[in-house]
Design a protein around this nucleic acid. Sequence first.
DNA 1: TTCACATTGTTATTATAATAACAATAATAA
DNA 2: TTATTATTGTTATTATAATAACAATGTGAA
Lengths: 209, 209
Amino acid sequence: MNPKSLPDKTIERLSQYRRNLLICLSQGKHHIFSHEIAQIHHITPVQVRRDLMLIGYSGTLRKGYDVRELIDLIGKILDTEQGLKVAIVGVGNLGRALIGYFSGKRSKLNIVAGFDNNPDKIGKIYAGVHCFSSEKMSEIIVQEGISIAIITVPAENATSVAEQLVMAGIRGILNFSPKPLNVPPHVYLEEIDMITSLEKVAFYVKKHL
Amino acid sequence: MNPKSLPDKTIERLSQYRRNLLICLSQGKHHIFSHEIAQIHHITPVQVRRDLMLIGYSGTLRKGYDVRELIDLIGKILDTEQGLKVAIVGVGNLGRALIGYFSGKRSKLNIVAGFDNNPDKIGKIYAGVHCFSSEKMSEIIVQEGISIAIITVPAENATSVAEQLVMAGIRGILNFSPKPLNVPPHVYLEEIDMITSLEKVAFYVKKHL
DNA sequence: TTCACATTGTTATTATAATAACAATAATAA
DNA sequence: TTATTATTGTTATTATAATAACAATGTGAA
């Protein structure tokens, strides 16, 4: 019920549940059992039921959960009513890949601007997202009321980009650069370290060799 | 000492420590305190010391840790002597971004092949990595002794790609597609769900709004 | 020499997450 | 009707990770 108290991992799973529930719905499936949800995500049915208990959702005995209702409830927890605007800083391969992922997806999260300092890219439109000069970043973030930024610039620029973003009033950052960033407590930071993830895979492969 | 028993999170941090220790070394810094390492990664010095304790490394009182020695020890834990070969399946924007990240990095992990079914890409070389037809995937994986694969194909192809990879003898998979994959227990699977990560950022931004 | 202290190394405690155990109940079958 | 069973919902236990507490010690100052 109270989203403040939901475990971090539950939030992650809710996002994943929703994505796959939407697929179920599009396939005409209107009810689903905990063990079916579990199977899709390769977790246990108990884990699923526990998550749903935490968000205060009840299914029907021997009938399972109402897919539509569950999607809507997850939406109430994860989304804001009017949606949040996202900027992507660094329109290289990775940046464009992300723009591609998100464009078209009906969503309460919209990438509304890209920033880059490569003159060839400035003024271009990638999958519907306008690329602006990095110099205009702060200005546009404030103007547009953008609250989330995705950092996909090279490591050497990441720190200064993050500082600018914080100054411009960004409230959440998703950092893909391998450089650990330092942000004040009112800014939520999530880091995706692809190099570490690969080295981790290698470690476990080595272990079981 | 015994890498079997190292906590998962410690493995992740070791990878990150090493990356930044290499930077320190290149800047001529030969000794480092736990609180310095901690500051770089925005964690506590205790956490750092605990990790180093677990790998059986001892520093010198009032002098800190020997950067070179520590890098080498982490290498002994994470790397294999002769290195492991990596394939990247899906040479779209994301695939090329990853190739770019890894190429040039001196490393025991080398991307030795890319696979795609787009005829325009087959035969091309991206940042030193040859792109082959998906049809040759199993063959080349076996031939080259590739043990790790990175999946960067669209969701609808991910499942079948994963099956082929497992059949071909791959031992570790890093999955970037938003589709949860099912692999046998002898294959290590790490999933990076970028959409969920962004939705998580949005959730915490909403929470503190 | 002796004391203070910076810093490491280790154990104890707490927090977070996952799993297991089990209680409740509606649908179905006997 | 009564028993069986599939399934949900909740509490209890265990596993994992992080933090805190503190013990040990070599260095430099007095």
